[in-house]
Design a binder for these strands. Sequence first.
DNA 1: CCAATAACCAAACGAGCGTTTTAATTGTTG
DNA 2: CAACAATTAAAACGCTCGTTTGGTTATTGG
Lengths: 211, 211
Amino acid sequence: MSQTDTVSRILDAAEVLFAERGFTETSLRTITSTAGVNLAAVNYHFGSKKELIQAVFERFLTPFTDSLAAELDRRVAAGERLSVEGLLESLYRVGMGSLAAEGRDPQRFMRLLGLAYTQYQGHLRRFIVSRYGDSYRRFAGLLAQALPGLDPVTFYWRLYFMLGATIFTLSSFDAIEAILREDFGAQSNLPETLERLVPAAAAMLKVDAER
Amino acid sequence: MSQTDTVSRILDAAEVLFAERGFTETSLRTITSTAGVNLAAVNYHFGSKKELIQAVFERFLTPFTDSLAAELDRRVAAGERLSVEGLLESLYRVGMGSLAAEGRDPQRFMRLLGLAYTQYQGHLRRFIVSRYGDSYRRFAGLLAQALPGLDPVTFYWRLYFMLGATIFTLSSFDAIEAILREDFGAQSNLPETLERLVPAAAAMLKVDAER
DNA sequence: CCAATAACCAAACGAGCGTTTTAATTGTTG
DNA sequence: CAACAATTAAAACGCTCGTTTGGTTATTGG
């Protein structure tokens, strides 16, 4: 078993288990036995559990923000007028695409993102902000441009409303979908839910704007 | 020190600490030393840590759902036509009022609610659904009535979008407010944020409805 | 007033945790 | 092929956790 094998097997197992139960509730013993590697391998390859958590986030956030940057570059270069809906679609499409391309589960990353915001892991928040803060600010800036006439403070709050609706819904997608199926017999999938989310979130962002 | 003292001191400490760090990250030793009571008191009075968690939720959810029910009764009896905005305002006002009345912090409960959804605590989700599911369904039903012409599945998803925006934003209120203050020098408070949230959430719920 | 019951407390138990150590094994390279 | 570095492996360390035990102190009803 080569090094990359062990490292990525650990990351695969950690990703799934963290998303399922959170960080504190997942022990290194569970991770390593799921991955089929020795317990000491985590500390050998990653240094500590904290650094493993960061590595899990880095492995999916870096391709995601890179793809998003490329997508935004492309559309800006083409001189497109970027609408609120268009920006949200780009965000969601890249989120689905850049990860699904690697055969990984997009909603798992939404759960991880939700955990990053919710759980008591100061190091993780600092890591994400320092590493991916620029990407976030660029997207937020373009979104603000698409909402002229909206005062900055209102925009900022609504940005968080939108993030909350997105992260909360998608990270609980399975649970919500199960309730829906039980109560209405209607089944949904992730792309369909995102199609519902785009106009809803856009409407929320645009109230009283664009005068 | 009478029994009620010990019990409520434990609940007070647990409420604050759980909201700050989550359930797993808060030990009974931290709780009992903060409360100034003996370690064994938790297991004596509550039985287990799980039951303590449930008791913390019960103590704020029961007054909240009771007040909400009374408020809705009052408005329905008065023959008021309940608008989306009106329902959201009732929800938030009761959330602020029924808790602030006891001198407790409303956004702490938002953090706890967020944790209930996010953290890996099956027993807690079951407890809340079985105990407060009826209140939830009544509010959702009234909200659906205020949105005629919206198909049930779309309504249900948007209800979760709204819940996500609310819980996510309010449970991270301090963090978001700190960023805002730093970037814009503008400070907000909770009532003001709720005033921003009502029209935004209402707009999201109402897209393409009420035709 | 005094048994009976409830409440409290210090100490310990066993289990699980992240991490470290030491040794064996594998892979690489001159 | 020998020498060296990188990796894997087994075992243990020190610590914290939730819970339990056994004994002491308060409270209370007859």
